[in-house]
Lab assay of single mutants.
Amino acid sequence: MQIFVKTLTGKTITSEVEPSDTIENVKAKIQDKEGIPPDQQRLIFAGKQLEDGRTLSDYNIQKESTLHLVLR
């Protein structure tokens, strides 16, 4: 499924993921596309910071959901 990751600069990254993918996994995909190390990434969805060990389905993230990427 496709999800969108919006950066603070307003850029939107499209990523191909599975509901069973972990947040860590998603951060790795963002690193592949943007070159941002996962340890600098914080992903936010519905006002919550997403934890690395959890999966997209844990957070009820569905296709075409938009996550927000904040850098630390």
Rank of each mutant, 00 (worst) to 15 (best):
L8G: 10
A28Q: 13
K48L: 12
K63N: 15
L71E: 07
D52L: 05
G53K: 12
D21F: 08
I13M: 07
L50G: 00
L43T: 00
K6S: 06
I36L: 06
Q40K: 11
P37I: 05
D21Y: 08
V17E: 00
K6G: 03
E16R: 10
F45G: 01
H68V: 13
P37S: 09
E16N: 11
R54H: 11
D32F: 12
V5Y: 03
K29E: 04
D58E: 11
T66Q: 06
I44C: 13
F4N: 05
D58R: 02
T9Q: 12
S57W: 08
S15N: 08
V5L: 07
I30A: 03
S15L: 15
F4S: 05
Q49N: 12
T14V: 14
Q31V: 06
I13H: 04
Q41S: 06
V17H: 13
G47T: 04
Q49T: 14
D58K: 02
N25F: 11
S20G: 11
Y59Q: 03
T12K: 08
L69H: 01
Q2P: 07
L56D: 00
G47E: 04
E34M: 15
V17Y: 06
Q40R: 12
R42K: 11
D58A: 05
G53F: 12
K33I: 14
Q62L: 10
L8T: 13
D52C: 06
N60E: 07
T14R: 10
P19G: 07
T12M: 12
R54W: 10
P19M: 09
R42G: 07
L50M: 08
I3K: 01
L67I: 13
I3V: 06
V5F: 09
K33C: 07
D21K: 02
G35Y: 03
N60V: 03
Q40S: 09
N60K: 09
T7K: 04
L8D: 11
K48A: 09
Q49P: 11
S65F: 09
I23Q: 01
S15Q: 15
R72W: 13
K27Q: 03
E64M: 11
G47W: 05
K33V: 12
T14G: 04
T55Y: 05
K27C: 02
E16C: 14
L8P: 15
E64W: 14
Q62S: 10
G53I: 07
E64P: 05
D39N: 12
H68D: 07
E64I: 02
S57D: 08
L71M: 10
K33Q: 13
R72Y: 12
T14A: 09
A46G: 12
G35A: 05
K29P: 00
L56K: 00
R72Q: 10
N60Q: 08
D21G: 03
L56Y: 02
K63G: 13
D52E: 09
V5I: 15
D21V: 03
